[in-house]
Design a protein around this nucleic acid. Structure first.
Lengths: 151, 151
DNA sequence: GCTGAAAGCTATTACGC
DNA sequence: GCGTAATAGCTTTCAGC
């Protein structure tokens, strides 16, 4: 599916505020309700527009510690990897997980109540799957956090 | 502000799908429209519930490269830091930025079209502010990505 | 603090250009 | 493919319990 300039404007607007009415979006992109609605529907069907969610205040809800976890492993068999990925997907503390190119094999972003909760998570993970080397980076300050793509 | 069990259920439901109607949420949490609406309003006012957004398919929109950037700096004066933070906040490719404890000073998550676009970003950043050491980790596979807190 | 109903918007569809 | 207009459904407010 190809995206034109109006679609792009709609996406920018939706990323900023998905709670807006169609009229507001239409006014912003210089169109009117029906075409905007049809474009949104098409992009939803094409999977370009995914879930609609709400950003919560992590600190206010007691999640005061964010760790970035760098993982090196000696195991590279398909079997081990399946198990590892399943473990990551099953743990709600893991907000992000990426397989990397190069020296470090995986990076995780883990959101927990405090350092103690991170240790519980860490112990549980390494008892489930064997990893060679783990480095945890503790966030002192969240400078920026957005899900918006630089459209 | 303190959150009770019903509030928590509402937040879980909203994180999963913020486009649901109040009736659906009310049914899910075992309450009805008005009380759910009042709770959501209060949590919005308290800042617990923040922006409502839409998750877009990065690959479909041409953002095919994600980098995690580890930064060490020799500069730790307030002046330098202000300039660095302002630079990060101003760049839309930077989706996340954290100041860290320990050896590595900052971590960024940068979303760009391709490796060439990353280099453009990198050159621009280091020409703006002096950093001592930069390591870029390239994501090969996004295993998991969620903004949901483990409520 | 809940329920139920009224009022005002908004999404969604149908129709004409 | 766009805009206008009608309808159906939703959010938001409010009165009564």
């Amino acid at each position: 599916m190809k995206i034109d300039d109006t679609d792009r404007k709609i996406l920018i607007s939706l990323q900023r505020d998905a709670a807006q009415s169609l009229d507001e979006i239409a006014r912003e992109v210089g169109s009117s309700k029906t075409p905007v609605w049809n474009r949104i529907r098409k992009m939803r069907e094409a999977g370009i527009i995914g879930a609609q969610t709400v950003i919560l205040d992590a600190e206010a809800l007691g999640f005061e510690a964010t760790f970035f976890v760098l993982i090196r492993t000696s195991e590279h068999e398909a079997d081990w990897q399946q198990k590892f990925l399943a473990a990551l997907r099953a743990r709600p503390e893991v907000q992000e997980a990426h397989r990397l190119a190069g020296d470090i094999d995986y990076i995780l972003k883990v959101r927990v109540e405090n350092a103690r909760a991170y240790d519980v998570f860490y112990q549980a993970l390494i008892s489930e799957v064997k990893v060679h080397n783990v480095t945890a980076l503790l966030s002192m300050e969240e400078i920026k956090a957005t899900t918006a793509l630089p459209l």
